Amino acid sequence: LRGKKKEELLKQLDDLKVELSQLRVAKVTGGAASKLSKIRVVRKSIARVLTVINQ
């Protein structure tokens, strides 16, 4: 992550946020259990990207 440019990080952040919103919709509509663990992974990925951006 640290080797990427800021523009790439921001694009990745947008993609992750879109994916997270889709997973939340799937959870509300009764999605599979595998998607519940994926939510945690995506949230941590967002946190990692934000950490690198803010450093």
Rank of each mutant, 00 (worst) to 15 (best):
L1P: 02
R2L: 15
G3W: 13
G3C: 01
K4T: 12
K4G: 04
K5L: 15
K5V: 15
K5I: 15
K6D: 00
K6S: 05
K6M: 12
E7G: 10
E7M: 15
E8M: 15
E8I: 10
E8Q: 14
L9G: 03
L9I: 07
L9C: 03
L10I: 08
L10K: 12
L10E: 01
K11T: 01
K11Q: 02
K11N: 03
K11C: 00
K11W: 00
K11M: 02
Q12E: 03
Q12S: 10
L13D: 03
D14V: 11
D14G: 14
D14N: 14
D15Q: 15
D15P: 01
D15I: 11
D15M: 15
V18G: 10
V18P: 03
V18F: 11
V18H: 14
V18Q: 08
V18M: 13
V18N: 15
E19I: 15
E19H: 12
E19Q: 15
E19K: 15
L20F: 04
L20W: 10
L20P: 04
S21C: 10
S21P: 05
S21E: 05
S21G: 08
Q22G: 08
Q22V: 01
L23R: 07
L23T: 11
L23N: 08
V25G: 07
A26E: 03
V28M: 13
T29C: 15
T29Y: 09
T29M: 15
T29K: 04
T29Q: 02
G30A: 13
G30Y: 08
G30M: 15
G31R: 14
G31I: 12
G31D: 09
A32F: 15
A32E: 03
A32K: 03
A32P: 05
A32W: 13
A32Q: 07
A33W: 13
A33H: 02
A33I: 13
S34K: 13
S34A: 11
S34P: 03
K35N: 02
L36G: 02
L36C: 01
S37D: 04
S37K: 14
S37N: 08
S37Y: 05
S37M: 13
K38Q: 04
K38M: 06
K38P: 06
K38N: 05
I39L: 13
I39G: 01
R40G: 09
R40N: 09
R40K: 10
R40F: 09
R40W: 10
V41R: 09
V42K: 00
V42R: 00
V42C: 03
R43H: 10
K44D: 06
K44R: 11
K44W: 02
I46H: 00
I46W: 07
I46C: 04
A47C: 12
A47H: 10
R48H: 04
R48S: 06
R48T: 04
V49D: 00
L50K: 05
L50G: 02
L50T: 02
T51E: 12
T51H: 08
T51G: 08
T51W: 04
T51L: 07
V52D: 05
V52A: 08
V52Y: 13
V52S: 11
V52W: 12
V52K: 15
I53M: 07
N54W: 10
N54F: 09
N54V: 10
Q55G: 11
Q55C: 00
Q55F: 01
Q55L: 08
